[in-house]
Amino acid sequence: MPRFLNATSGEVRLGGADVRTLPAGRLRERISVVPQHSYLFSGTVASNLRMGAPEATEDELWQALQLAQAGDFVRGLQDGLHAAVAQGGAGLSGGQRQRLCIARAMLRAADLYIFDDSFSALDYATEAAVREAMAPALEAATVIMVAERIPTIMGADRILVLEDGRLVAQGTHAELLESSSTYREIAESQLALDEQP
């Protein structure tokens, strides 16, 4: 959708318009992405967060950090918002990096939010808290979440089940459990991995 790649055939439409006809810059302004590999640049926490919104005030930065459940650990850093970040975010744990990337994405008021497996490094409790905190902010927008864990996407309006690059099923969680064997398989294998004693 952000046109990092162009479709070989068929169309991807945003707001009724084929994305290939929209200037890439304008297109990406309306989209906020949390990519799969959380990458931070050398600078400060603030400079990284402002990538999505150069005009953001410090209050707005703290708000976004709060949404992403990252407020506490940033406050705990020696220079807070102005704490130095090394290239690639080295020195921060995987979960901390991801939360900063989520905060970065949340700072941008977009029509479409894309979370590409953005919660993988977070434990379930933190992840649930983040999703809950983000919900009001995301209400008006379209959200696309790529996830591996069923609990992450269980409450979605529509779930797309992909296999080998093909869409094999779509529907709500309840509908899919009934209608799609693939979905059921995935749910059950996740169950099997976390069996209660």
Partner: peptide, 22 residues
Amino acid sequence: NAHVEEFITGHEVIKAFGQQDT
């Protein structure tokens, strides 16, 4: 050199946030 290396590694993020000009 260091700047170039960083921008190339994180180029997708830069593109996603339209920060090419910066």
